[in-house]
Each structure stands twice: as structure tokens, then as C-alpha cells.
């Protein structure tokens, strides 16, 4: 039998690699093309875009869509609200989750078992949309900015991961802090959190993306136009073109249409996607590492 050189590759290997590469290129193209299409349409003149036939580059290059977006008080206000809720919601979510998790990571915590049972039940079961709405109403959170950041402050999935992670921190490290006279909270801030950076980065990314993309809370729990988020605005333009169920209403919808041009919608999507796509690559190393933290030992 012919011995295969460790470095040279057989015909079968080359064929397999070629097929793999071709398939992956096709899949990558199919996956990436919709985003690319959105990008080129956003840079194409709106009126010209209606004619269709744009596939690989803008036929009539124009920055007017972005100009209209940034000049529109409606869109800018929603962008500001989205940025504000993402920053505030992420900071509150990360801090709240970490604090709760640190407390629950202490095995000598009184009623530890009961707390864990409550968390696990809450993670798997939900009261449903209507009880949740009633709860928000009774807490007077409806139609306020707080409805974006308060209900989601504790992310139970990450609580589980954080508990496992914090338990892995050497006990000696924490004891040495106590011996130096540090308080519990000071130890958490100055010893525990600094060694938990991968975890914090992962949580920041997940929670931040969740806040950035969320539109249901803006649709259902808010009525003020000044509190609408960017994702809600995009759902709004999509819904404007959706056909009503009632046939007579459909007639009026067709006649009354002031639908945002397709290219303006694309510009809004680029603005919404842009920040996340810029941040993601930088945090990806933390994401891959952090998501496994504590997962096996949990």
C-alpha cells in the first residue's frame, strides 16, 4: 500500500476540501446577500429603487435616505431612546445580575435552596402576557422609560452562569480580602468583578443586543410616541405595508398608503444593524469563552 506523506494531500482530500469550500461559499453568500442587499438599497435613490433591478451595487447612488433618517425627528428620537435604554438597561442588567448571583453563589446563604427553586421555576414558567401586563400596570411602569430597564434587570439565565463562575473564584482570594478588612460589597467590587471580565463582556453583549433589538415592550407597554424605540419604528413601517384582514380596510389601506419608501426602510435597518455589527467582532473572543464559563460545572 502506498504510504501517504504527512504533508501532501491526496486527491480525495482535495476534492473534499473543494466541495466544502464551494458549499461554504454558497451558504455564506446566501446568508450575507440579504444584508448586502439592504446596504446597497440604502445607498440608492428611493424613487429609482422602486423600479427594482438592483442586485449588486446601487444604480443611483444617494445619501438622501440617511440624510432623511437623521433629519427626521421621529427616527432620531427613537434612536436616542434605543441608545439610552441599551446603555441604561445593560448597565442595570449586568450589575443587578452580578450582585444577585454573587449573593446566591455563597453556599452558606440562608434559604439558599428556596431562592434557587424560585429562580429555576421562574426561568421555565411564565404567567403569560396578560398577567405580565397587569403586573406592569400595577407597578405603574406602563408608558414610562422604566418599563424598558426595570422588568429585565435580572437575567435568570445569566444568574445560573454567574453563580457557577463566582464559585470557581478561589476562596482564598476572597478570604484575603476579608482579612484586610474589606466589606462584602467592597470585595465584590474590587476583587470579584475584575477577575470576571470575560463573563461581564459576554453578559454585556447579550443583554445589550437584547435591548437594542427589543420592540415588543415598545409596542405593548408604551403608548407615548416619544418613547418609541428604533426597532418599533421599523416594525411600524413593515406593518404599514401589511394587508389588513378586513377586505374593506384593505381597500383603504391601499388608498391611504403613505408607506415609507423601501430605501428609507433600508437606511433605518443599516443604522439599527450598524452598531451591533461593529461591536460584535471585538467581543467575540469573550463571547466564545464566556458562554462556556460555568456551563459545565453548573
Amino acid at each position: 500500500m502506498r504510504r501517504r506523506n504527512a504533508i501532501s494531500r491526496s486527491l480525495e482530500d482535495r476534492v473534499l476540501d473543494t466541495v466544502n469550500i464551494v458549499l461554504l461559499v454558497i451558504i455564506a453568500f446566501i446568508t450575507m446577500y440579504p444584508f448586502y442587499y439592504i446596504l446597497i438599497l440604502s445607498f440608492n435613490d428611493g424613487g429609482d429603487a422602486i423600479r427594482g433591478g438592483i442586485y449588486f451595487w446601487p444604480r443611483s447612488f444617494s445619501l438622501e435616505n440617511f440624510q432623511q433618517f437623521f433629519e427626521s425627528s421621529k427616527w432620531m428620537r427613537s434612536l436616542i431612546v434605543t441608545v439610552a435604554r441599551t446603555v441604561a438597561g445593560t448597565a442595570i442588567g449586568v450589575m443587578f445580575t452580578c450582585v444577585v448571583s454573587y449573593g446566591l453563589s455563597k453556599k452558606d446563604l440562608v434559604y439558599h435552596g428556596i431562592y434557587m427553586k424560585i429562580l429555576i421555576i421562574a426561568m421555565y414558567f411564565s404567567g403569560g402576557l396578560i398577567p405580565y401586563y397587569i403586573l406592569l400596570k400595577s407597578l405603574r411602569l406602563l408608558n414610562t422609560f422604566a418599563v424598558y430597564v426595570i422588568p429585565g434587570a435580572l437575567n435568570i439565565f445569566f444568574v445560573m452562569i454567574c453563580i457557577s463562575f463566582f464559585r470557581d473564584i478561589p476562596e482564598e482570594l476572597i478570604e484575603s480580602a476579608y482579612l484586610d478588612g474589606s466589606t462584602e460589597f467592597n470585595t465584590f467590587l474590587k476583587i470579584v468583578l475584575p477577575v470576571s471580565l470575560p463573563l461581564l463582556a459576554t453578559m454585556t453583549l447579550f443583554i445589550g443586543v437584547g435591548h437594542w433589538n427589543s420592540w415588543i415592550d415598545s409596542a405593548y407597554y408604551v403608548r407615548s410616541e416619544n418613547l418609541r424605540t428604533l426597532s418599533y419604528r421599523m416594525m411600524e413601517v413593515i406593518n404599514q405595508t401589511m394587508q389588513p384582514e378586513d377586505p374593506t380596510a384593505r381597500l383603504y389601506a391601499a388608498e391611504s398608503s403613505r408607506a415609507t419608501t423601501q430605501s428609507m426602510q433600508m437606511a433605518a435597518m443599516v443604522v439599527a444593524l450598524g452598531p451591533i455589527m461593529c461591536v460584535y467582532p471585538f467581543l467575540q473572543k469573550y463571547f466564545a469563552k464566556g458562554i462556556m464559563l460555568g456551563a459545565v460545572k453548573g
Binding site: E225, N239, Q240, T241, M242, P244, A249, Y252, S256, S257
Partner: peptide, 9 residues
């Protein structure tokens, strides 16, 4: 209760 309603204000 009409998602297509054009007058928002």
C-alpha cells in the same frame, strides 16, 4: 386599531 393608519398624530 389599524396598523396601516397613516395619520399618527
Amino acid at each position: 386599531n389599524h396598523t396601516w393608519w397613516p395619520l399618527k398624530t
